[in-house]
Amino acid sequence: MTGTTANTGALQDIRVIELGQLIAGPFCGQLLGDMGADVIKVEPPGAGDPMRAWGRGDHKLWWEVVSRNKRAVSANLRVPAGQDLVRRLVAEADILIENFKPGTLEKWNLGPDALHAINPRLIIVRVSGYGQTGPYAARAGFGGIGEAMGGWRYIVGDPDRAPSRMGLSIGDTLAATYGCLGALAALHARERTGKGQVVDSALYEAVLQVTESLIPEYVASGYIRERSGSALPGIAPSNVYACADGEFLIGANQDAVFARLCAAMGRPELASDPRYVDHVSRGAHQKELDALIEAWTRTLPKAEVERLMIEHSVPSGTIYRAPEMLEDPHFAAREAIVSMDHPRWGELKMQASFPKLSDTPGSVRSIAPQRVGEHNDEVYGALGLSAEERAALAAAGAI
């Protein structure tokens, strides 16, 4: 698959103006762009979005994922001429995304009241650390801070060590995903009302949304979830087990599934053992049960454990890295990874559009813009700005 497919996405008639930088705003734009929206990425003249320089060593590749399916223009939002360009873009847009510190848009005379005066149908997605209201609204906030405040960091890692990060910017991407979800809901509401609205997505609240029953457990019983490493406390067996040649994940905590695991191990009697006969009993004897299972998995290579788990319908799997993903036939059959023809990187592979829609599937249609302001002539020309006007704006530092 290449990035030259036609736009069949559900949002192909939607235009998005993306003002955000780094992770949360751009990821929201990526999701909308993958679903077919025409995303116009606005960057400051010069270096552009700092995301262009994020990556490992000489391989600055995060930009290539988060900015695919976008057109790039430059505009200096700190000067009136740049602000005016955004107003002109907004007049023909459906959604605007920003993830600046609250109050920044208002300082630039681009707040919701000003933008809705230009385009009452505009949906404004605002992603920030703490939201647009409340005593912490004016504080600077990054994803990691939102993960800590939202309850995620405290429960991640091993119990005898300090809290860990996930290894990905999950707070940012969660807030972006909820921002996208809010934008889609607002588009639907606009069909009834004819009016746009503001979508307020806070990093800490996005994380809070996925913390399951963490708060009710404390309120009802005083229970505070703690770090538990690779295991789920009281949910057994569900863990990572060492094999003769690596590690393997098994989840067999439901009674019937546990019985099938016992059969696969050649120990069917364990399913009726009073220590393991039901969910509560297995949870109470979790450590010894995990040790018993690992004593068995250590005698076998991962491939054999996997074969037995599949044969006995026990949920399980290898812990994948990028190489395993690229080699897996299921990834290939589902086209979960797309190949892009790239002028610098050659055949560049990355995750494909998701989720999959049967009638209006999303797609990766174009590589990320390689230059700041790459589409200035195309986009600003369509707004009616002549070549001379564009040259004057560039000379003045507005684009």
Rank of each mutant, 00 (worst) to 15 (best):
A220C: 13
S201N: 07
E205W: 02
L214W: 11
A206V: 00
L232W: 07
V210T: 02
G194Q: 03
V198T: 09
E212L: 04
Q209D: 13
E217P: 07
S221F: 14
E226Y: 04
D200K: 07
P233W: 00
G222T: 03
P216V: 09
I235C: 15
G196E: 06
Q197T: 04
L208Y: 14
L203H: 00
S221Y: 15
Y204E: 12
S230I: 15
S213R: 04
G222Q: 02
G234P: 08
G196Y: 09
G194I: 05
L232C: 15
I215C: 03
G222D: 05
P216E: 07
V199A: 02
P216K: 01
R227I: 01
Y223F: 13
E212Q: 03
K195S: 15
G196I: 02
S228F: 05
G234S: 03
Y223K: 12
E212V: 07
I215Y: 02
A206N: 01
V207E: 02
E226L: 05
A220R: 13
K195D: 15
V207N: 00
I235V: 15
A202T: 03
E226D: 02
S213V: 08
I215S: 06
V198N: 08
A206Y: 02
S201R: 08
V219E: 12
S228Y: 05
L203G: 09
P233T: 10
V210K: 03
V210C: 05
T211R: 09
I235L: 15
G229A: 03
V210I: 09
A202P: 02
G194S: 07
Y223C: 03
R227P: 09
S221G: 14
T211N: 07
G234V: 07
L203M: 01
G194H: 10
Y223V: 09
E226R: 07
G196D: 11
E226C: 08
P216F: 00
Y204L: 04
S213F: 11
L232G: 12
S230G: 15
Y218E: 10
G222L: 09
I224W: 12
I235Q: 14
Y218S: 06
R227S: 05
G229H: 01
Y218M: 04
G222I: 08
V207H: 10
G229T: 10
G194C: 01
A231C: 13
S221W: 14
V210M: 02
K195T: 14
A206M: 09
A231Y: 04
K195L: 15
E212C: 04
G194E: 06
I224F: 13
V198S: 01
L214N: 12
I235W: 12
G194D: 06
L208I: 00
A231T: 15
D200P: 02
S221P: 00
E212H: 05
T211F: 02
I215M: 11
T211H: 09
L214E: 12
A220Y: 07
L208H: 04
Q197P: 00
T211D: 00
I224L: 14
A206G: 02
I235E: 14
Y204R: 10
P233F: 07
Q197F: 01
Q209S: 15
Y204K: 06
V219P: 03
S213P: 08
A202G: 05
E217N: 08
Q197L: 01
Y218L: 03
S230F: 15
S230H: 13
